[in-house]
Design a protein around this nucleic acid. Structure first.
Lengths: 338, 338
DNA sequence: TTGTATGCGTTATCAC
DNA sequence: GTGATAACGCATACAA
């Protein structure tokens, strides 16, 4: 375990050539079973371990997949990542994970670092404020597979994995209206991001379908961080026409809103019906329990992992899989009940 | 952006030797500023980018830190990781993250993979059921820095970063008793892990200090997964002497317990006072809000990152930092009130 | 089926 | 202050 032993050592030890050692270890078809067995045995005996650095240099591959996500410590993201990790791991790939912390600058830096690290592929979920996508060009130009997950953007040859946010927004809004709400406010994250923008579009469409008029002042854009709750509440309190429905595009923030509203003596769901998004564990733990849209984070991760590995290995038809859309589901709980 | 350009290309282009290029790019002191500038300029012009694979092979370093944690999708772990990532990133290190999913087998596999990947160091938080630590030996023998975070074990030359779980357990129990509880039950994760075992020790000590007798049947070991809540509740219901205090060693599980108890018509905190652990966001969102022990996950991550990088760079005295203990804090909320 | 030889792109040791 | 040159450890094209 002290000195590093190489294929040359094995070669000397067994009186064969280094090439034979290399081929044996890689299970190359042209090597006799006898030789292979001999080599593998000796390798184990001497505690041989391939030098990945050399392999990487030789093959110009790293067996590594880069990941850029906004935040590690959100339930959705870490669940998604757990899915990616599972698949990647089983396929023998390592994950290099970096977070943009919702800032383009950091995202740009991360992209550069990952590119320079020589990742074989990259998985991205965009930051709140990304509007320019040039930092992904190196990957595209170098034909390094790039897949967007959840927070996506259309770039040539970059598949996307999403849910139908438009339909989900529609479903949530529709549900609230069926429960009798007339004046539904939407609390959203950055509208630069498809996940939020599309849900808002769905919201608008649902209003229309139910014969309601869209009012700009009922869209409230925020960072969805807990500290912003007060802004939301005071905004709600000062609206001319009282809000009776709240569509919050993240469960964790919805939970904070519910808590703050209760403190202000609003009854949920009697005064205001609330629906969230994500089916975060917290949605079942708040009082009242939170209606929400189920969001298949883990499956999204699995799928992203599988897709990117297929792309690395080249066994995929890009045309076929330009956008994968997963199924969402409305979950009715107490916060939107009657 | 098409063809990869190397230091040889730059050398030819500028009529100097590859060595000079390399030195210039690495800001070697023996190179004249004039040459350096010239080289850097040309490098940018041609879009030169170092080949990390070659650098790694040459230096036998990867600028990469491996991480093994039980689960990505827990608030504490992802927060801790966010801290590590921040430090590592700033220091130019990449993180290769893998999860054991609370299984030794997977942990062992991950360790092997990371070792073979040639990580420069490794950060570990142990799985529930790890009892044999041989899979970490290769790192120790190869003098690859290894630091345990939170769920730790004492191995030679492997510093640990923890909180004082004994004291925290003591504090939590003591608090409950000061609130008037007489019969406190502990819901714990695997007692093979220091984080849980030490808290239970603290619990026992607090009992003793308050003149109470320890009863074995008041320790309930579980996976702390939400599906196990029913077992806990039915156990509680069938105890001879009614439980009036609950010390749950994870907030998320405590939240589930509270919910289940309320469903069984227990009043919290009147019938049973509850305290959790971690100060997970959910602790502020449940009703009643959950008393807990603040757990500095992010700081732990920062510290782990800093320590491991110091160790990689060799500027540290191992003796001095064999165990770093961070400060915890009791947070009193409604669930343990009067 | 196996051996030989070269190159992957750097860094580092000697020279000069 | 700069240039040659030899590793680093492996995979592979070409020979045999």
């Amino acid at each position: 375990m002290d000195k590093k032993i190489t294929i040359y050592d094995l070669a000397k030890e067994l009186n064969v050539s280094p090439g034979t050692i290399s081929r044996s270890l890689n299970n190359h078809p042209s090597i006799s079973k006898k030789t292979k067995d001999k080599v593998v045995l000796k390798a184990n005996e001497l505690g041989y371990k391939v030098n990945k650095f050399a392999v990487n240099l030789r093959t110009q591959k790293s067996n590594t997949i880069g990941v850029i996500i906004p935040k590690l410590n959100s339930h959705f993201m870490s669940t998604l990542l757990a899915g990616v990790e599972k698949v990647a791991n089983e396929a023998g790939y390592n994950l290099i994970i970096s977070q943009s912390l919702e800032s383009v600058e950091k995202e740009r830096l991360n992209a550069k670092t990952l590119y320079n690290s020589g990742v074989d592929a990259i998985l991205v979920s965009l930051a709140f404020n990304t509007e320019n996508y040039d930092h992904f060009l190196p990957f595209i130009n170098s034909k390094i597979p790039l897949i967007f997950m959840d927070r996506v953007h259309n770039l040539p040859n970059c598949p996307t994995i999403v849910i139908d946010n438009f339909q989900a927004g529609y479903d949530a809004t529709n549900h609230l209206m069926h429960q009798g709400t007339k004046n539904i406010m939407v609390i959203t994250g950055s509208l630069k991001r498809n996940v939020y923008a599309d849900r808002v579009l769905g919201y608008k469409e649902a209003l229309k379908a139910n014969g309601h008029k869209f009012k700009e002042e009922l869209i409230f854009e925020t960072t969805l961080e807990s500290k912003s709750v007060d802004d939301v509440i005071s905004y709600i309190k000062h609206l001319d026409e009282p809000v009776d429905g709240l569509f919050v595009l993240a469960d964790s923030f919805a939970a904070h809103c519910i808590k703050a509203l209760k403190k202000e003596n609003y009854n949920i769901p009697q005064d205001i019906k609330v629906i969230g998004f994500n089916n975060d564990p917290v949605s079942q733990l708040v009082t009242p329990t939170l209606s929400t849209i189920e969001y298949p984070g883990y499956n999204m991760g699995l799928l992203a992992g599988e897709s990117i590995i297929n792309q690395i290995k080249g066994n995929i038809n890009l045309q076929d899989t330009n956008a994968i859309s997963l199924r969402h589901k409305l979950i009715e709980r107490e916060s939107s009940g009657n």
